[in-house]
């Protein structure tokens, strides 16, 4: 068995035995060139960093910066919910250390309001059926948001194809 076969066998065995995904095998990957999972990942981190450094009163009143915990929760949520081809979100600070993550495309609007860790209001409207809004309160399970983003990405591709 060569080295690659050994690694593959190891991963298969691990998955069979534990049901887990092998998420890190540093010793094997040191010479592997990996693209970032999302092209916008670094920009999102920089934006969150910027929002955590806002001065108190940045809104002209007494608003604090986005809280450190909310920024970390937002990063974790995005990593869990965004498919690889999801477009870059807009990130908007709130007046109470909260923040809003938004996608606005020609087909769909999605807004996620992070009030606190595990306290998220999710909203979606699809332009083809604007009378039907989806509105949910979410905690740590963002599978529904992942579905929305998959649909948004597919709809955007379809809209661009038909326009072209």
């Amino acid at each position: 068995m060569n080295r690659t076969q050994s690694i593959n066998a190891f991963e298969r065995r691990l998955q069979v035995d534990t049901g887990a995904n092998v998420s890190s095998h540093v010793a094997f990957s040191s010479r592997v060139l990996c693209e970032p999972r999302h092209a916008w990942r670094q920009r999102v981190i920089e934006r969150l960093d910027e929002l955590c450094k806002l001065q108190v009163g940045w809104d002209g009143y007494q608003a604090p910066p986005v809280s450190f915990a909310n920024a970390h929760f937002a990063a974790s949520m995005l990593a869990s919910a965004c498919p690889l081809d999801a477009p870059e979100p807009q990130i908007v600070p709130g007046a109470s250390g909260d923040l809003q993550i938004e996608w606005h495309t020609e087909t769909t609007d999605i807004e996620l309001h992070i009030r606190a860790p595990n306290d998220v209001d999710a909203w979606r409207v699809v332009m083809s059926a604007p009378e039907r809004e989806d509105q949910l309160h979410l905690t740590m399970d963002f599978r529904v948001v992942a579905d929305w983003l998959v649909e948004l990405s597919e709809a955007s591709v379809a809209a661009r194809s038909s326009a072209a």
Binding site: N21, S23, S24, R37, R41, V44, I45, L48, D49, C52, K53, P65, F68, A71, H72, F73, A75, S76, M77, L78, A79, S80, A81, C82, P83, P117, N118, M140, D141, F142, R143, V145, A146
Partner: peptide, 20 residues
């Protein structure tokens, strides 16, 4: 934070904000 969504998304964003 542990959050859930798509399977096999790997590790969360590596994130090192230093603010205040």
């Amino acid at each position: 934070f542990e959050t859930f969504g798509l399977p096999a998304q790997g590790n969360p964003f590596s994130f090192g904000i230093v603010a205040g």
